[in-house]
């Protein structure tokens, strides 16, 4: 039985608590819903720990109203911890997109899966770039939002920037926009 009744795009971002994984999902969802005027839903899952535990966010973006709010099989998988790679790669769609930070993740271990399913792999050193170019490791998530925006084209640059300014603490807007642009220019 076919399930392709609409053109909803599914994104999953996984890492560990403290990396800002959930905020990156909020920004993408907000950009789509408020500034690109599409439909979007963002959900998250996390363990009871404040930092260090597994952390995951899911975003659905569609031109139609979204009913089921969870990712069933992601079109785009973004990975910021090796544990998350091992846990989430298996239900990535065929010919789907995998974006990783190669300093945190070794994609070689799933090369069979990647080849078999014709996965597009992008390696973006977001944590290293955030640390070296912005001087703040904690903006790695925003660098990653830049990468996602460029590669997937699911949200517009304008909407992404507005959503960032709207979501980050006051006084940090400029640094975060620089982080976004840094990520946007990697590919």
């Amino acid at each position: 039985m076919g399930t392709g009744v609409d053109m909803t795009k599914e994104i999953k971002i996984g890492g560990f608590g403290g990396q800002g994984v959930i905020l990156s999902g909020v920004i993408i969802g907000k950009a789509a819903a408020l500034f690109d005027k599409k439909y979007s839903v963002q959900t998250q899952s996390y363990g009871p720990e404040a930092r260090g535990g597994a952390s995951k966010t899911e975003i659905l973006i569609s031109d139609e109203e979204i009913t089921y709010p969870k990712v069933q099989s992601p079109d785009i998988l973004v990975i910021m911890s090796h544990e998350a790679l091992l846990k989430y790669h298996t239900n990535l769609k065929e010919e789907g997109t995998l974006i990783v930070d190669p300093d945190l993740v070794h994609v070689g271990v799933i090369s069979d899966f990647i080849n078999k399913n014709k996965i597009d792999v992008y390696e973006a050193q977001v944590t290293k770039l955030a640390t070296e170019k912005i001087g703040l490791k904690i903006v790695a998530n925003i660098v990653m939002v830049g990468v996602i925006t460029k590669i997937t084209k699911l949200i517009s640059v304008n909407a992404a920037k507005k959503a960032i300014v709207n979501s980050v603490p006051k006084g940090t807007e400029d640094k975060n926009i620089s982080a976004f642009e840094l990520g946007y220019d990697i590919f």
Partner: peptide
């Protein structure tokens, strides 16, 4: 929890 933590417009 789903509705409590989910974000939508």
């Amino acid at each position: 929890e789903v509705i409590g933590h989910m974000r939508e417009r």
